[in-house]
Computed example of a mutant assay.
Amino acid sequence: MMRAYVALGSNLGDSRQQLLDATAALANLPHTRVLARSRFYRTPPWGVRDQPDFLNAVVALETPLPPHALLQALLEIERVAGRQRGGLRWGPRTLDLDLLHVDGYAISDETLTLPHPHIAQRAFVLLPLRDVAPELEIPGQGRVDALLRSVDTQGCEAVA
Rank of each mutant, 00 (worst) to 15 (best):
A4C: 04
Y5V: 08
Y5L: 09
Y5T: 01
V6A: 05
G9V: 01
G9C: 09
S10V: 08
N11C: 08
N11Q: 07
L12S: 06
S15A: 13
R16E: 14
Q18S: 08
L19K: 06
L19G: 00
L20G: 13
D21N: 14
T23R: 06
T23I: 02
A24I: 13
N28F: 03
H31G: 07
R33C: 11
L35A: 10
R37W: 02
R39Y: 12
R39H: 15
R39K: 08
F40D: 10
F40M: 10
Y41H: 04
R42P: 00
T43P: 06
P44N: 07
G47F: 00
D50G: 00
D50R: 12
Q51R: 07
D53Y: 11
D53H: 14
N56I: 01
A57L: 04
A57P: 05
V58G: 08
A60C: 15
A60I: 12
L61S: 11
P64W: 11
P64R: 09
L65M: 12
L65T: 12
P67F: 12
L70R: 09
L71E: 12
Q72M: 12
A73T: 02
L75H: 14
L75A: 02
I77N: 03
I77T: 00
V80P: 06
V80A: 03
V80Q: 11
V80N: 00
R83E: 02
R83D: 08
R85N: 12
G86L: 00
G87H: 06
L88C: 14
R89W: 07
G91F: 14
G91K: 12
G91I: 13
T94Q: 02
D96C: 08
L97F: 06
L97A: 02
L97R: 05
D103F: 09
G104N: 08
G104F: 08
Y105M: 05
A106C: 10
E110N: 13
E110G: 11
E110A: 15
T111G: 11
T111A: 14
T111S: 14
T113E: 14
L114K: 02
L114I: 11
P115G: 03
P117I: 11
P117N: 11
I119S: 05
Q121E: 15
R122F: 01
A123I: 04
F124W: 05
F124T: 01
F124D: 03
L126N: 03
L127S: 02
P128K: 04
L129G: 08
R130Y: 09
R130T: 15
E135M: 10
E135N: 15
G140P: 09
Q141H: 12
G142D: 08
D145R: 15
D145T: 14
S150P: 00
V151R: 09
V151Q: 03
T153G: 06
G155N: 07
C156Q: 09
A158Y: 12
A158L: 13
V159F: 07
V159C: 10
A160N: 14
